[in-house]
Each structure stands twice: as structure tokens, then as C-alpha cells.
Computed example of a mutant assay.
Amino acid sequence: MQISQLWVYPIKSLRGCVVPQAMLTKEGFYHDRRFVLLQQDEANPGKWKHMAVSRISQMVLFHTSISGDILTITYRPPGSTADPETLEIPLEPENLPELKRVDVNMHFSPTTGFDMGEKYSKWFSDRFGFKVILAYWGNNPRLVLGNLPNKPTTQGPKPKNVITNVLSSLPVIGPMLEGDDGVIAFNDCAPYLVVTEPSLADVSKRLPEGVEADVTKFRANILLKTSDSAWAEDFWGELAFGDEGAKILLTGNCGRCKSLNVDYNTGESGTGKDGELLKLLQKDRRVDPGVKYSPIFGRYGFASKGSEGMVLRVGDEVALSKRNEERTRFYWPGIST
């Protein structure tokens, strides 16, 4: 196998950046999901919730690019002939101690972010039409509550008592208690997501002739070219990259949501078959009883301990170093079935 594309997503749910190389860290590729956009939670005044394409489809109209230590956001509304609007954001804020802290609770795994300030919040708020906060991760880890390396089956993590649950939610104490358990930034359920070209091609077969599935909708970190058949990755347990010995341990399946139906050109629901992609996949890709209503495309994974700091490059050779006898079952309390 071979790496054909690498992606990082500096701000969760905005468009990603295709990159020639990316460095592995415990929490994901360097710069991946280090920022998140928050909106006010109408059900809980004073609280903020993370924004996602499945709820706010116009997020796909914001493009990202990285140059040096600057992240540039580019926005142009559909049909506009004016020059695109841009915003520059430092990838590593220098005034972090001065920034206001904000609680972020994604998929029942809480952490603390840093409010980047009015300049950035106003830029996004003006374009979305409601109050938005841009929050920076700041190395405050979120605990992985689901499938972990060496625990990728039906049971998930061992239950904790009430006191441990509370302590684990604290950014500093949590990792000390968790030991080898995984942590993430503003990723959904794991640091990495791997998909393959044959499976992407199989998705395209469900669409009208001449229409290809848009790989960007699937928000993968790694796209692999392989001679395997479509969906062979359902059974993959571990991948080895290049000559340095970098490994990604694949622990769970990625269940897909209605964000697949969004037209990335308009920021609205797609029309025709392209707007029914989720339904088309549900016909035969509901293969994980852990998310029995969601079609599966892609595998979640974690970098092995010895792989942190290693760099993956487009064109690197990839070997399947472990294959599971049966599919893993997705587990995440509050999400899995």
C-alpha cells in the first residue's frame, strides 16, 4: 500500500488542508483539530457547544491553509463575485496565559479551551449570523472514552467510580489517572482516521454515472492506495509506515452521519443522489452493531508510543502489520448502541 493523500483540519469541521507530510503526535497530526468553533447552547444559557457540519452545513464554505506559523481562513459565499474574505490566525498563540478559559464538552468528554478573543469571534460571528467563539486547544487533553489500543472490542474502557470520573474530567489530573489511555484534542473519537481509495471508489458506484464521491466529505487524515478490495480495512488492526517503524493502531470503525449529504460547493443539502449519500450507504454498510444505524467508512486509530514525532509523507509505503479475525465494535458511552 501507499499513502496517496494526507490531511490536517486545523479548525474542527471547517475544510481541511491537504499536505505533503505530517508529523505524528499522541493527539493526532501536528496542527490537527487544535481549534474549535463554539456556539451558545440554547438549552443551557451560558454554556457553549461545539459546531459541526451535521448541524451547521455552511461550515464547509470556510477553507483553511497553513503557511509557516499562520493559519489563513478563506470565505466566499456561493454566487459571490467579490474577492474572498480572509482571516489570519496564529497557530500557536503567544498570549495564551492571558486568554479567557472556556469549557468545551464534546461527546461527553470535557476539556478546557482558550477563547481567542473578540477579533476572531466577531469575524466568524458576522459570517455565520450568530454569536461564535473561536477556542484554542492549548494542550488541555480530552479523554478518549471509547475504543482504545488493546481495548478495541465491545467492552470499551473499564468503569470508574464516581470520584475517579470527576477527577478524570480535569485537564491536569485526568491524564495522570489514565496512564496509557488515549487523549485527543478537538477530534471526535480518536486522533486519526484512515480510509482507502477502493472503498471511496465503491461509494462512487452508488452515484450517477460520471459523478465521483468527494473525498473531502469523509474528513480522513490518511487516504491509502491499495490493491485490496473495497472495505478490506474493516478488518485492519495495525498499519506500519515507511522505514522508520511508525505505526498506527486501528481500534474502531467510523460511523457516518448526515454531513455526507451536504453539497460542499453551496453549503446546503445536496440535490439528487449526492444529497442521499448517507441513505445509499446505509443499504449495505451498516456493519457495526455498536452504531447500528450508521454506515461505516474508515477506521479510527492511534499512533503507537514509539511513533510520536515521526513524519508521514505522501508516497510512503504502508504495510498491514495486523489483521483482525472479525470486525471491532464501536464503543463510546452516550453515542454507541
Rank of each mutant, 00 (worst) to 15 (best):
T74A: 13
P93N: 04
E92V: 11
G46S: 12
H63L: 00
H107N: 14
F128Y: 10
V144M: 15
D69F: 02
S54M: 14
P77I: 09
T112A: 12
V60I: 08
E85F: 11
I73Q: 02
A135F: 02
M106Y: 07
V144A: 15
T64I: 01
M51S: 08
I70A: 10
F108R: 15
G68L: 09
I70Y: 05
K100C: 05
K47T: 14
W48L: 04
F62P: 05
N147M: 08
L61E: 08
D126W: 02
M116Q: 02
H107W: 13
H63W: 04
F130M: 01
S125V: 05
G146A: 14
P141L: 11
E85S: 15
D69S: 00
A52D: 11
S109T: 09
N150G: 07
F62C: 05
K119T: 13
D115P: 08
G129W: 06
S125Q: 05
P45C: 11
I133F: 11
V104T: 01
F130L: 03
D69C: 00
S54G: 09
M51F: 02
T112C: 09
P141G: 13
K49G: 01
V53P: 02
T112V: 14
E85H: 13
P149T: 07
N139Q: 14
P110C: 06
L87N: 07
H50E: 12
F124R: 00
F124A: 01
N140K: 15
L71H: 00
S121K: 00
F124E: 00
T86N: 01
R55Y: 00
G138C: 15
G113H: 10
T74Y: 08
T74D: 10
L145Q: 15
W48C: 05
L148P: 09
K131E: 13
L148Y: 13
A52E: 14
E88K: 09
M116R: 03
S57P: 07
R142A: 11
E98G: 04
F114R: 01
T81Q: 04
W137A: 02
D83K: 12
T112N: 07
N150Q: 10
A82W: 03
D69P: 01
N147K: 04
G68N: 11
L145A: 15
Q58I: 03
G138M: 15
M51Y: 04
M59W: 02
L96S: 13
S125M: 08
F128Q: 04
R142C: 08
P93K: 03
L61W: 05
D115E: 08
L61S: 10
S54P: 05
S125C: 07
M51V: 04
T64A: 06
D115H: 06
I89T: 10
F62A: 05
L61H: 06
P110I: 08
T86Y: 03
P78C: 13
T81V: 02
Y136E: 10
F130R: 03
G79E: 07
S65K: 03
V104A: 05
R142L: 11
I56C: 03
G113V: 08
F124D: 02
K122V: 12
D115C: 06
